[in-house]
Design a protein around this nucleic acid. Structure first.
Lengths: 195, 195
DNA sequence: GAAAATATCGAGACAGTCTCAACTTTGCAA
DNA sequence: TTGCAAAGTTGAGACTGTCTCGATATTTTC
């Protein structure tokens, strides 16, 4: 994954590219196993590189997380677009929301970063977040038009719900994210469908 | 607040009690201003005490937070009991949930501690959490009986919702906790009231 | 194949958590 | 009142983590 991505504008030196990839790989493994707060120093060590090298490629933890999440976010947006053709607009929305929650849960503690990225225009992830938000908005719009969700539910509401549910799931021992998400989605529903 | 609370079993030495109170006061101020992650070292300094003294009284950050929250939690439980007489059971529940969210928001980043405390039987706060959960359950039960909430909504669901909404509010720049809480509560509502 | 450009290295400054042996203060009992 | 054991405090220091930067090494380019 993320095989040939030279992130800055000009081409990277061969050794630099190697280290860059190695760092991403190790970071992904470490974050998946220990959460998004795992020591950067330890990641550099695991990647067989001095910590200065890590900071050279990724000035902040967020930059590293963002490099890791970019593709994933785009994929999530794409999934959203596919679900636009779901039989029931509401179900499409709900399915997507669940996928988004799984996505957030990939690294424990990731939610906060994702919430910040959406508001911070300078974030590498901002474009990806915008795409995700747009995907959410399309799903919402369709459900709204079908009279299946309340007219005042916004894409940021959906985004916040997904991340908050993921957060709650991380805090509870039989993870409670699913339940919270379900209730929240029910709350989005227009009160009297038709029957 | 918390004027005369000798927390351990045997009476505390006068100077120890003084320091204990001083630490609580400074910690409350610092956490309120800078969030629950504020440096313990700095709190000790502000309290005019060596950091070893702080650790002597509060072995962990959580212990300090717990000492700070105990009374507050009990008060929240009491508020719940009062709201049992609200005109509409659902409104009583909703009002209480909002109060609980404000309560969680007292220190930025507190939510995680509160979520852990409810599950950890060894926590100082566990009893207080249980009281809060019980208060929530009573409000839920009343609303359930009145047919105003779904039968499958539990007190832990309510607790998780409140804390998750508080968390979300901390992450968003016009705080979105209120909205999320509202949607969640709507999701708790029984589908077809009567009209 | 050597200069220029680009990366890496790792020591060290800094901040935070937490511990512990030496020291000080308090309260009680004679 | 005194004095001493118990209780409490102190602050240096071990440790972990973040982040920077001058010296050094590797690649690329011509």
């Amino acid at each position: 994954m993320n095989a040939d991505t030279p992130p800055p504008r000009r081409r990277m030196r061969a050794d630099a590219h190697r280290n860059y990839e190695r760092l991403l790989t190790e970071a992904a493994a470490a974050f998946a196993e220990h959460g998004a707060d795992f020591s950067l120093e330890a990641i550099a060590r695991r990647a067989g590189v001095a910590n200065g090298t890590l900071y050279g490629h990724f000035p902040t933890r967020r930059a590293l997380l963002e490099a890791l999440m970019g593709d994933r976010m785009q994929a999530l947006a794409a999934t959203g677009a596919e679900l636009l053709t779901a039989r029931s607009p509401f179900d499409g929305l709900a399915t997507w929301a669940r996928a988004a929650m799984v996505h957030t849960t990939i690294y424990r503690g990731l939610g906060a970063t994702l919430m910040q990225a959406v508001e911070d225009e300078t974030s590498e992830l901002h474009a990806a977040c915008t795409a995700v938000l747009a995907a959410g908005e399309e799903l919402l719009a369709r459900a709204r038009t079908a009279g299946e969700v309340r007219p005042d539910v916004t894409a940021p509401d959906l985004y916040a719900l997904v991340n908050a549910a993921a957060w709650a799931g991380e805090q509870t021992s039989p993870p409670q994210g699913e339940r919270l998400l379900t209730f929240g989605l029910e709350g989005f529903r227009a009160s009297a469908p038709d029957r």
